[in-house]
Design a protein around this nucleic acid. Sequence first.
DNA 1: GCAAAAGTGTTACAGTTACACCCATGG
DNA 2: CCATGGGTGTAACTGTAACACTTTTGC
Lengths: 222, 222
Amino acid sequence: METAPQTASNHHPQFQIEIDVVVFTLRENSLQVLLCCPRSAGQWQLPGVSLRTDAGLEETAAGCVTRFTGLHEAYLEQLYTYYKPGGNVAAVVYFALVPADSLLKDKDESAANWFPVNDLPALVPNHDEVLVYALRRLRYKLEYSAVGFELLPENFSLSELQSTYELILGEKLDKRNFRRRILQAGIIESTSHRRAGEGRPAQLYRYRPDAVAEVKARRLFP
Amino acid sequence: METAPQTASNHHPQFQIEIDVVVFTLRENSLQVLLCCPRSAGQWQLPGVSLRTDAGLEETAAGCVTRFTGLHEAYLEQLYTYYKPGGNVAAVVYFALVPADSLLKDKDESAANWFPVNDLPALVPNHDEVLVYALRRLRYKLEYSAVGFELLPENFSLSELQSTYELILGEKLDKRNFRRRILQAGIIESTSHRRAGEGRPAQLYRYRPDAVAEVKARRLFP
DNA sequence: GCAAAAGTGTTACAGTTACACCCATGG
DNA sequence: CCATGGGTGTAACTGTAACACTTTTGC
């Protein structure tokens, strides 16, 4: 990475690098994504910033999330790097999960908004594709890792967790099987809090950050 | 991707983009990786080229594989993008699988060589890490997709396929279970060829490119 | 006391694993 | 005819999916 790659010529083309972030959250009973509409573009697009030479990729993505949501900790993962030949700007796309009810700050400056993933506005070219890919990755990841907690506040009830999974996967789940599995996996622990409301109060749980989140799935091959 | 991202300033830092490729193959009964040692660096590193403005990322990676192995078709997948703050070159890393016995061409020009993944030379900084990640991804991918065929010639026996899996996963597999599963999955078809040698001749199979390769694994969550 | 959400076990079924012998060919 | 690698089925087990009622609270 530090040394020049070996090519015939010695001068290398220069590119601009843009970090885009697909930020998901749960709002209004649906999975939503953060989009912004800068005046210069006049069209909705993923929030993004230009990479500076003195900043890391993930660091920059995290800064972008903070700037648009005000949150300082979010689940972040590199998704894909795009480059369209003929241009001179490459886009490194991250995806992020932020807890429910993360409010937008700087609303006017950033002109950003949440949109349900099933009801998106027209987007800048290629961002549709990126979004579809991010969504696929999120669903996929949900099936073999513990990523669902990132969309919930620190303390949550099992019913809330189940709804999260149902919303993202788009299917209903069996309550008893869901509880058994999630508890057996040992990735959450109960807290001393309970949430009152209509009906019987719910036991609240917390994610155990020390838990080993990825689990070996059944293999097809061999 | 085309429009400028919104930042305060209007001038953007410029970077060089390097495409590196982790090329795996099976040779001498082990999983091996392609490394090169350009005169300028004097140290082993992943083969890489500088991105040109008029070329796509995957296209460039494919060209890199061709240049070092002589092969024109290889399984390619984007792995990760790295950037070390303070530098000005980002590296987009791909991983590639090439069939057994892919010979190196241009041996002297490229100064490249195959190394068993368990016995690597000292590498340029950060490439160790990249390689470890690539290997993890390969093992992982092998478990839920049909990627193993990419390391074999067009026609192969079931025993050869099984050895491939065993070599990569680093564990022995049950012959009968292996065969049942791979055949049930319907991703290979028998050909009219057989391979003679010591012992009973083996039926040769071929990968069905139309097969749906990715299969839903058992979920932990929900 | 009733509406509303939380919590709790068991059984049938499907898929996975473990395992040992016969077959076809070349020398 | 024998050495070598190729090819084949079954039984025990483990994990998964389906399913309905009782409990606790607020009003």
